[in-house]
């Protein structure tokens, strides 16, 4: 993501001091962030943190107690129709009319927004790979097929903001990969803003450009995936012939503490530029090096670290 380009663009979705109270309980507390066209934004948080509540406020299913949400500059509060015209979404599970066929379901949603013709419906059906079973009743669909039909209804009207709640739920590995590639195309080629929430953190790492972490209704931070993961520090793992000796060498000659010592490997938390220095020093001290890998923390590790590791499914 080029941050320079980003700064010049108008946000596709903008939350301004959004607060939601159920009675006296504050569920969402002063949430503000922006999402831009051309990026996949991941929305992360433990269960009950307020992800779904936030998404529901964005799509107008729930009212906010305070604040405002703008979609392509239109307020969800005062310009509901213009705002929602830009949005395609799946909220939680893709619940469709089970007594109708997949195609009838799509016709149903197509009728609600002007300008969607039969050709577009067929195009979307082709896209989500449901062509062969589109005329079957939805009650006979598997979860993965329902998920794909859900995606189809969200894409029908070519929205500029796509909101997907747990989109990989029920998809097989091939389906997940297809979805990832498709979202990549949508954002890069058509400039769509995509908001994804998921519990599959490793999946989010592959899919998202930026992530926002929410806990107990508060935003802990919005960062790019790389920044987020690297903030935990970079580590390098060296495979050597004698771990103990290697650790002694780096301590004596470079004054670097080893993170962990194994008989045939050591791990060091050091800056990127220091890596060749360490390797040089080890080689000079007759330590044999068989491999060097940089170990970044996975999103999951970081996530657990940030949220305190509680209440995550």
């Amino acid at each position: 993501m080029n941050s320079k380009v980003e700064a010049e663009k108008k946000p596709a979705v903008k939350l301004e001091h959004v607060t939601k109270k159920f009675g006296s309980k504050t569920v969402i507390d002063d949430l503000s962030f922006e999402i831009y066209g051309g990026e996949v934004f991941g929305f992360l948080g433990p269960n009950g943190a307020g992800k779904t509540t936030t998404i529901r406020m964005v799509v107008g299913l729930m009212r906010m107690t305070k604040g405002n949400i703008f979609i392509q500059g239109h307020s969800v509060k005062s310009e509901f129709k213009q705002a929602l015209r830009q949005v395609g979404a799946i909220v939680e599970n893709p619940e469709m009319y089970k007594f109708l066929t997949g195609y009838q379901n799509l016709i149903h949603y197509a009728r609600m927004i002007p300008g969607i013709d039969k050709k577009r419906i067929d195009e979307v059906v082709e896209l989500v790979d449901l062509k062969e079973r589109i005329n079957e009743k939805v009650k006979r669909y598997s979860l993965g097929m329902r998920q794909r039909l859900g995606l189809a209804q969200a894409l029908l009207h070519r929205p500029s903001v796509l909101i997907l709640d747990e989109p990989t739920n029920g998809l097989d590995p091939q389906g997940i990969r297809d979805l990832r590639n498709y979202l990549h195309d949508l954002t890069r080629k058509e400039g769509v803003a995509v908001i994804v929430s998921s519990h599959l953190l490793s999946e989010m790492q592959l899919m998202c450009d930026r992530i926002g972490i929410i806990q107990k209704g508060k935003l802990l931070g919005v960062e790019t995936v790389n920044e987020f993961v690297q903030e935990g520090g970079e580590k390098v793992r060296l495979t050597v012939d004698d771990g103990a000796m290697a650790a002694r060498v780096v301590k004596e000659k470079l004054a670097i503490e080893t993170e962990s010592i194994e008989p045939q490997a050591i791990e060091l938390a050091i800056d990127h530029e220091k890596i060749p220095v360490v390797i040089d020093t080890l080689v000079m001290s007759q330590v044999k090096i068989y491999g060097a890998v940089s170990v970044t923390k996975s999103l999951e590790d970081r996530f657990l670290e940030v949220t305190g590791g509680k209440g995550l499914v």
């Binding site: 705002a83 949005v87 939680e92």
Partner: peptide, 12 residues
């Protein structure tokens, strides 16, 4: 059935 969610997020 939960279909209300997909019904009410249309520009209507």
């Amino acid at each position: 059935t939960g279909t209300i969610k997909l019904l009410l997020i249309r520009p209507i």
